[in-house]
Amino acid sequence: MTDVSMTVNGRQVTGSVEDRTLLVQFLRDNLGLTGTHVGCDTSQCGACVVHLDGQAVKSCTLLAVQASGSSVTTIEGLAPSATELHPMQAAFRENHGLQCGYCTPGMIMTAVDMVARHGAELDEKTVRDELDGNICRCTGYHNIVKAILSVAQSMQGSGEGQRIAAE
């Protein structure tokens, strides 16, 4: 067993884990942060996406020991307070960008990272491109794409640049 310590959602945490423990297992089993999900074994579905030192990563493809010393943000740590939502969380709700909710935490963490990198320049093609590592079986992605674009567009403060072709 190895001691790990990291900042998770702004809080310093420590734990003792087998070296083979994945970050997602540490988050779920040791810290009880069950918002981060596991949907595949092959690093493809993205249900486990968290931010590691500010960047979206797959917590199922990272050992907890690799993340030791880093800062991790999970879906539970995204909202600014218990009563407020992060704009991306709000956009997913307003656009009906989720159904069963299982892929949603990873989708939102990926989306936040995406908008942070592209800002208002984000267009539909880029959104779809960058969702390559996140699989949703419920929504057909339609409303997820809309939600992400709505946040990106709000960053330039107007409805200008409407890039969705349909609906």
Binding site: I75, L78, L98, T104
Partner: peptide, 8 residues
């Protein structure tokens, strides 16, 4: 679901 509080 959007805040990670779903219970599966």
């Amino acid at each position: 679901f959007i805040t990670g509080r779903g219970r599966y």
